[in-house]
Amino acid sequence: MHLALFVIFGLFCLGGALNLLLQRHPINSALSLIVVMSSLAVLYLLLGAEFLALAQIIVYSGAIMVLFVFVIMLLNAGEEEKTHGSRAAYLAGIPGVLALFCVLASTYVTLRTSFGQARLGNFIVTTEELSRVLFRNLLLPFEVTSILILVAILGAVVLARKEQ
């Protein structure tokens, strides 16, 4: 059951990602990205991370992608057109992606034993356990990330400020 769900939503995820690249219209690409994000959330749920799954839906599918769609609608972006650059992207991109895939696959095969294993199943990591890890063991990275986001917000404010 869990394996079947994992395979189905893994395929959804890959299909969405491919569709994202193949679609010509930005809004269709954005919608495929939403599919990718949501199927990732289901994969998290299968791994027992319920809070993470819902956070993924709320933050990525619900907030960040809404802003993407908003910007696409606001700019009224049309279909992409083929240029010389896109030809070059095909020529360099497809072999590049294949090479990257081979490197990743061979790394995975050689290092497979040292990765440890993740289980699919009926267990749940509660929000309490997650926050204990996050606010005790990983407190420093957590705070550093929040400062990083604060810097990004300040940067956005500076960029959006009207000239005096």
Binding site: L54, I57, I58, S61, A63
Partner: peptide, 10 residues
């Protein structure tokens, strides 16, 4: 509670 918030945001 999070499910409700998530569904609303979608």
């Amino acid at each position: 509670l999070l499910v409700i918030l998530g569904v609303t945001s979608v």
